[in-house]
């Protein structure tokens, strides 16, 4: 409500849309603009600060290699273990990738500046969500490619790519909300995985079993894909609703 009033008063555009009938359209357009701006900013930042994002990718690579050494994945029949290895890697890499999603902004004051923008705050969230979704998806697909090469199992199939996309969407939408911890809470680096991982167990179970189904492994007869879809929809809707409350000052 406040946002709407602020938008009405603010001379945002010189399009002359001042009558109330067109305010909704303006609000909608401004929201989309804001989403696009935040998305562009975050993608640029992810690119310019490749180090932190690449750290997550390196961590994921190391995680796959560690599993390979620990369970001797190379000589045994690796297929029964692969879904678990992949999804645990996705989960841990995501925590590293998203850990500082809001920390820099909170430290530099960017978040406060963004919150002053006269647009619904959910649009800011959506922009960030898409940016980090792209980042995490890139890491996940790279891991699929790596595992394909290392374990000689075809993993870059449309089915697995769909599962990975769905998993990354659900993962980012929930974890990004928790990453708003910002700089106010001490030792947040430890706290994020402690808070996020129990919440993400349905995603892990659904992802592992659905991947198992895609690899023709025994996977039980529950609708695992539906579980992934429900979890993703739930976490996206919940986060979109709660994000404005999470960043309120």
């Amino acid at each position: 409500m406040n946002d709407e009033r602020a938008l009405h008063d603010a001379p945002l555009h010189d399009t002359g849309l001042h009558d109330t009938g067109q305010r909704g359209a303006l609000l909608h357009g401004a929201g989309l603009d804001a989403t696009r701006a935040v998305l562009g900013k975050d993608l640029r930042l992810l690119w310019r600060r490749r180090a932190s994002w690449l750290a997550a990718a390196t961590f994921a690579t190391l995680s796959v290699l560690t599993y390979a050494f620990a369970f001797d994945l190379v000589t045994d029949d690796v297929r029964p273990l692969l879904p678990g290895v992949l999804w645990v890697t996705f989960l841990f890499a995501g925590v590293v990738a998203l850990g500082r999603a809001f920390a820099d902004e909170a430290e530099q004051g960017t978040l406060d500046a963004l919150l002053l923008a006269p647009v619904p705050r959910t649009t800011l969230y959506v922009g960030k969500l898409v940016a980090y979704f792209c980042a995490l998806l890139a890491i996940d697909v790279a891991m699929l490619a790596l595992a394909t090469v290392l374990f000689n199992v075809g993993l870059l199939t449309p089915e697995l790519l769909l599962l990975t996309t769905l998993g990354a969407a659900g993962y980012v939408s929930l974890t990004l909300l928790l990453a708003t911890l910002g700089s106010r809470v001490r030792s947040r680096e430890v706290l994020l995985p402690v808070l996020a991982l129990p919440l993400l167990m349905p995603l892990l179970i659904g992802g592992v079993r659905a991947t198992g189904a895609a690899l023709d492994l025994p996977h039980g007869d529950a609708p695992w894909l539906l579980l992934l879809v429900v979890f993703t929809a739930w976490s996206a809707a919940g986060s979109a609703l709660l994000f404005p409350l999470a960043v309120e000052r």
Binding site: M201, P202, I205, G206, R209, G220, W224, L227, F231, W234
Partner: peptide, 9 residues
């Protein structure tokens, strides 16, 4: 959701 997923598990 946790209960449902774990029960299927």
């Amino acid at each position: 959701i946790i209960n449902m997923s774990v029960r299927w598990w």
